[in-house]
């Protein structure tokens, strides 16, 4: 059932996201072409203004794509589950978990797709600008390789670098899931109200953010100065002495942050699934 839900969720979101990402890619190419033409000194003032506008449009487009992915994530949940369409979705022979996960997975895929496209377009732009400044691309890659080689001579293993990469990917996924769930949990709480569901959702969002911030600060403040914390800080200071140690410290840093984010996510998920199963209150 989850597979079917995901399939239809893609069908519903792709009709907006694919054209948006397509336009962004086109803007990226146009912007890079514009850089080249501007650099070559070709054309009169009107054309040059147009070219500058293309470049500006590309940068705005990147922001718009992000906002769209975010708005899509929120509106799909609100309209498809909590609006009139919810009468269809919540009477499907499936459970609430599958409904939530289908939304989570598809939103995360679009976030990552958007991020990946922006990353690729930025790389392209970077390379393009470097070429225009007369830098040799092969040279840039070569110096990047030298940098890695240098790290290795300092004793940083390939394994720890790969681990770092994997941790980064995992962190991206967990952050995306938690971001979605922060909105979902707020909307799950907001829909319990008999009227003003939207308003209560916004208030719930603010309330949840505040609560978790407060919780985080309190825990951190509580830990500061304790023996355990002092030991941790001492260990970190020792690690920071060597390059492999620094990499390990970063590993540990990302790892522990991710663990906290995961706990945060689980709590939000429980709020979402409980409000949508036990306290469902469709308008």
């Amino acid at each position: 059932m989850l597979g079917q839900l995901i399939k239809h969720e893609f069908r519903a979101t792709a009709r907006r996201m694919l054209p948006a990402l397509g336009v962004l890619a086109l803007l990226g190419l146009l912007a890079n072409l514009s850089f080249r033409i501007l650099d070559s000194g070709f054309g009169g003032t009107p054309l040059r203004i147009l070219l500058v506008l293309f470049i500006i449009a590309f940068f705005i487009g990147m922001i718009v794509a992000w906002v769209m992915a975010l708005v899509m994530m929120i509106s799909r949940f609100y309209r498809n589950l909590l609006g009139d369409e919810g009468y269809l979705m919540f009477t499907l022979p499936t459970n609430t978990h599958a409904l939530i996960w289908s939304k989570l997975i598809v939103s995360t895929v679009w976030f990552i797709a958007t991020a990946l496209l922006i990353f690729l377009l930025m790389m392209l732009t970077g390379a393009n600008l470097a070429r225009m400044n007369g830098e040799d691309l092969a040279g840039i890659f070569h110096s990047m390789g030298e940098g890695l080689e240098f790290l290795r001579t300092l004793g940083v293993t390939n394994g720890s670098l790969i681990l770092l990469g994997l941790e980064f990917v995992a962190a991206v996924v967990v952050t995306s899931l938690t971001t979605c769930l922060q909105f979902y949990a707020a909307m799950g709480l907001g829909q319990m109200s008999d009227n003003h569901k939207g308003l209560w959702s916004v208030l719930a969002f603010v309330g949840l953010s505040f609560a978790f911030q407060f919780l985080g600060t309190t825990v951190f403040a509580g830990l500061t100065g304790t023996d355990t914390m002092n030991v941790v800080i001492a260990n970190l200071e020792e690690l920071m002495q060597t390059a492999p140690g620094i990499v390990r410290a970063i590993n540990a840093g990302i790892g522990s942050t991710m663990l906290l984010e995961l706990i945060h996510g689980v709590i939000l998920y429980l709020i979402t699934s409980l409000t949508l199963s036990k306290k469902l209150n469709l308008a």
Binding site: A12, D84, Y87, T91, L92, T94
Partner: peptide, 21 residues
Amino acid sequence: PGPASKAIISYLPDRNFLPDW
């Protein structure tokens, strides 16, 4: 009520659940 009961119930709500798109 649960997935099993939903599989045997065909429900026509008092409102329209068909997405415009």
